[in-house]
Design a protein around this nucleic acid. Structure first.
Lengths: 208, 208
DNA sequence: TTTTGGTTACACAGACCTGTGTACTTAGGC
DNA sequence: GCCTAAGTACACAGGTCTGTGTAACCAAAA
């Protein structure tokens, strides 16, 4: 489309467009011609910046691998805020699941490069949870961190097929129970503090 | 390959082979020629049984949509046994995630037929959990059922990326905490013993 | 001015894909 | 024996894909 006003390297413009198309429509579904046409450049230029589509895919995934910004909020709040952020992303209509899980799913087990970066990403998320749990003095921080990433990935998978942002709220309520069970004070936060799970309202974005 | 000794309709042979290849390598990655060649039939025969590849994909997913066998075990045991079964499937080397999630991920949001059956499958699992929770007298059965499917799908996604069957155990431990918190007796904290669980009336206070 | 590096237009190779057309063969029921 | 249904072999149309080759173009630096 129209070139953005900011001075941006060609490589970054290619990556940005590839990201949008790969993520929203699938890696195999998008050809390099489509990416070049979307930017308005020739396919030759694209291949001058990336030696192959595989290299572009790898760069796309590496660009998606961003660390969460550091926060000075209390660790328990940071953990729970993860699910609020998730809910906001679910509500956006351009959310289409976890790019790493999707890439592994559609590229298959043979693509070891993709699998490697996906594993690294998932582990980094788990470690992020574990660090905060350690700060909170949770004894079984490692096991609990694993359980929290299960809730994150589970809600992402569910939202991918159901388009239901309430999955993030359900995950948050479950996370609260797990945290409380580990001795973390998560406040009553409107869910009564008696350990009962709040009823989750379900509203679909796309009526079937 | 060699035709199986059992009398099997051609349609079923095609579906069986398509299932194996689609699931293990991806739907877009497998062409109809590959399926026909794997069975040792001509492509024409395949198209005499399925009008298009899309029809074959739909039949593949419908064949994957199997209801869990009825069981006479106590509901809480049935629920927890789900995660044991999951762990066994993770350990098999031909496990490659949830076929419905994978299909939605690789076929994109435009394929409404695939999305529809994926939604139906996910909902059927959620309802299965809810029915058992209702039997147990859990008040917030619907919300808790949602949380349990988050754990199921989360462990599937994690295992897909990490090839780690322990994800199912982690999910099971989290499920126990959630069940206990809802007043279901799932035995003591230890995973040992005979694994039997007893149904006990709910007590609202969670252990803090 | 000359050079140089990035870009463009465009053709093309070679592979793979879905789906069809057609004529031939084979097996079973009548 | 004859007929029908199912399967086979094989070519082919028309499309997509990745990746390359080539000559021209253009702007900015030297």
């Amino acid at each position: 489309m129209a070139p953005p006003p900011t001075k941006q390297t060609m490589k970054e413009r290619i990556l940005e467009t590839a990201d949008k198309l790969f993520y929203l429509q699938g890696i195999r579904a998008i050809g390099v011609d489509t990416i070049a046409a979307e930017i308005g450049i020739s396919k030759r230029t694209l291949y001058n910046h990336f030696p192959s589509k595989d290299a572009l895919i790898a760069a796309y995934l590496e660009r998606r691998f961003v660390q969460p910004r550091p926060s000075d909020k209390p660790p328990a709040e940071q953990i729970l805020a993860t699910f609020d952020s998730l809910e906001r992303r679910f509500a956006a209509k351009d959310f289409r699941g976890c790019p790493f899980v999707n890439a592994v799913a559609e590229l298959g087990p043979a693509d070891r490069a993709v699998k490697k970066i996906a594993i690294a990403f998932k582990e980094s998320r788990r470690v992020w949870f574990r660090e905060r749990l350690n700060e909170l003095g949770v004894t079984e921080a490692d096991a609990l961190a694993t359980q929290l990433v299960l809730l994150v990935d589970g809600s992402i998978a569910q939202d991918l097929v159901r388009d239901d942002p309430a999955m993030a709220r359900a995950a948050k309520e479950a996370a609260k129970v797990l945290l409380r069970n580990a001795g973390v004070d998560v406040g009553d936060g409107g869910d009564g503090g008696d350990g009962t799970v709040k009823q989750v309202k379900r509203h679909k974005r796309a009526p079937q």
